[in-house]
Deep mutational scan, measured.
Amino acid sequence: MPEGSASLQLAVGDRVVYPNQGVCRVSAIDVKEVAGQKLTFVTMRREEDGAVVMVPEGKVLAIGVRKVASAE
Rank of each mutant, 00 (worst) to 15 (best):
V34M: 06
M54H: 08
A69R: 09
V17W: 15
G50P: 02
V12C: 00
I29P: 01
R15P: 02
V52Y: 13
K32C: 04
S70E: 14
Q37K: 14
G13V: 01
V60T: 04
G4Y: 09
G4V: 13
T43D: 02
M54P: 02
L8G: 09
M54R: 10
T40S: 08
R45I: 15
L10A: 01
V68R: 05
A69K: 11
E3L: 11
T40Q: 05
V26S: 00
V42D: 00
D49W: 03
E48S: 14
S70W: 10
V17P: 02
V16W: 03
T43A: 04
S5Q: 12
G4W: 08
Q21M: 15
L10R: 00
R25L: 13
A6G: 13
G50L: 03
G58P: 07
S7I: 13
V60C: 05
E72P: 11
E48I: 13
N20M: 09
A35G: 14
K67R: 09
P19L: 08
P56T: 11
E48H: 10
S5I: 12
G22P: 02
R25W: 11
A62W: 05
K38Y: 12
V34L: 06
A35Q: 10
E47A: 03
L8A: 08
C24L: 09
M44T: 01
K38F: 12
P19C: 00
P2G: 11
L39N: 04
G22K: 04
M54L: 08
K32H: 12
L61I: 15
V68Q: 06
A11C: 03
D49Y: 02
G64D: 07
K32R: 14
V26H: 00
S70M: 10
Q21L: 15
K38T: 08
R45E: 14
L39K: 07
R46D: 03
G58L: 11
F41V: 12
S27T: 15
V42E: 00
F41C: 02
L61N: 14
I29C: 00
V23Q: 03
E57T: 07
P56K: 06
V31A: 04
I63R: 05
K32V: 14
S7V: 12
S7C: 02
A62D: 13
V34T: 05
V68F: 06
V16T: 01
T43C: 02
A71S: 12
V53G: 02
L39W: 06
V31N: 04
E3S: 11
V55C: 05
S70D: 13
E47R: 01
Q9K: 13
D49M: 02
T40D: 01
V65Y: 03
L61G: 13
A71D: 13
L8N: 08
G50I: 02
K59Q: 14
D30G: 10
V65L: 10
P2K: 11
R15I: 14
V34A: 04
V55F: 08
S27M: 15
A11P: 01
V42C: 00
K38N: 07
E3H: 09
R46T: 03
G36F: 02
V17D: 09
I63M: 12
P2R: 07
G36T: 02
E47S: 02
T40Y: 07
V16Q: 00
A6Y: 09
Q37Y: 06
E33F: 11
V12K: 02
Q21T: 07
P56R: 06
P19F: 07
V60M: 15
K67D: 05
V53H: 05
R66K: 14
V52I: 13
K32D: 03
E72I: 11
R15H: 06
R66A: 10
V23I: 14
V52Q: 07
A51L: 11
N20Q: 09
S70I: 11
M54F: 08
F41P: 00
R46M: 04
S7P: 12
M54D: 04
I29T: 01
V23W: 06
S70T: 11
K38W: 11
E47F: 04
A71C: 08
A62Q: 14
A51C: 04
V16S: 00
Q9C: 02
E57V: 14
G22F: 03
D14Y: 01
S70R: 10
A28I: 04
V65S: 05
A69Y: 06
G22W: 04
D14M: 07
V68L: 14
V55E: 06
A11D: 05
G36H: 03
C24Y: 15
C24P: 00
G4A: 13
V55D: 03
A71V: 12
L10T: 01
G4N: 13
D49S: 03
V60Q: 04
F41D: 01
R45M: 14
G64C: 09
T43S: 07
G13Y: 00
Q37N: 08
G36N: 05
V65A: 06
S27I: 15
P56Q: 11
A71G: 10
L61P: 07
A71P: 12
L39I: 15
I29E: 00
A35W: 08
D14F: 01
A62H: 08
V17Y: 15
E48Q: 10
A62C: 07
R46W: 03
M1V: 13
M1W: 11
S5R: 10
I29Y: 02
S70G: 12
S70N: 12
V12F: 01
